[in-house]
Amino acid sequence: MQSAICYREAGRSERAVSLFREHLTTRVFAPRDRAFFTAQYSGALVAAGEPDEAATAAQEALSLAAGARFGQALAELHRTAADLAPYAGRPAVREFRRRLGELAAV
């Protein structure tokens, strides 16, 4: 997972997406880790030009992170929300950003 994060930060989002997909489906993670890695995955999807998939992954991460207030995951989700701003008109993106905003308002 660290390699996927590094690829994302290095601007190699397609490789990051591939690694996230591979490892998120084959490994068992603690809820906090799954929330964080899924949030990272959503950001990599935005950078790879897949905003709808990014919003879907972000919704999954938000569901994991919201109740327990997993700070790192929530910070990544805010970063993803900002990256998704150009796609705000898309239904999945709009729904994710609405849910994240509701959580922030609480």
Score class of each variant (00 low, 15 high):
residue 4 A to G: 07
residue 82 A to N: 13
residue 4 A to F: 08
residue 14 E to Q: 14
residue 63 S to L: 07
residue 12 R to V: 13
residue 33 D to W: 00
residue 91 P to V: 06
residue 19 L to A: 06
residue 95 E to G: 12
residue 51 P to T: 08
residue 24 L to A: 03
residue 95 E to L: 15
residue 95 E to D: 11
residue 29 F to M: 15
residue 74 L to Q: 08
residue 70 F to Y: 14
residue 66 A to N: 13
residue 55 A to E: 08
residue 50 E to Y: 04
residue 1 M to K: 06
residue 21 R to T: 11
residue 54 A to E: 05
residue 1 M to G: 03
residue 62 L to I: 07
residue 62 L to E: 01
residue 41 Y to A: 07
residue 28 V to Y: 00
residue 22 E to L: 14
residue 48 A to K: 07
residue 95 E to Q: 11
residue 21 R to N: 11
residue 58 A to L: 04
residue 76 E to I: 06
residue 11 G to D: 08
residue 83 D to R: 15
residue 77 L to R: 00
residue 81 A to M: 03
residue 61 A to W: 01
residue 85 A to I: 13
residue 50 E to A: 10
residue 1 M to E: 12
residue 67 G to D: 05
residue 65 A to Q: 03
residue 14 E to G: 12
residue 13 S to Y: 11
residue 70 F to K: 01
residue 60 E to H: 02
residue 12 R to C: 04
residue 70 F to V: 11
residue 78 H to D: 15
residue 16 A to R: 07
residue 12 R to I: 12
residue 38 T to A: 07
residue 89 G to V: 06
residue 2 Q to T: 08
residue 60 E to D: 11
residue 62 L to G: 03
residue 100 L to F: 14
residue 87 Y to G: 08
residue 68 A to W: 01
residue 24 L to I: 04
residue 82 A to P: 00
residue 11 G to H: 08
residue 98 R to G: 10
residue 9 E to P: 08
residue 31 P to I: 00
residue 67 G to K: 09
residue 53 E to P: 04
residue 22 E to C: 10
residue 39 A to E: 00
residue 27 R to L: 14
residue 40 Q to C: 07
residue 19 L to P: 13
residue 88 A to S: 09
residue 103 L to T: 01
residue 93 V to G: 00
residue 5 I to T: 05
residue 71 G to R: 09
residue 97 R to C: 13
residue 75 A to I: 13
residue 76 E to M: 10
residue 57 A to L: 04
residue 20 F to C: 09
residue 49 G to A: 14
residue 13 S to L: 09
residue 58 A to W: 00
residue 63 S to H: 08
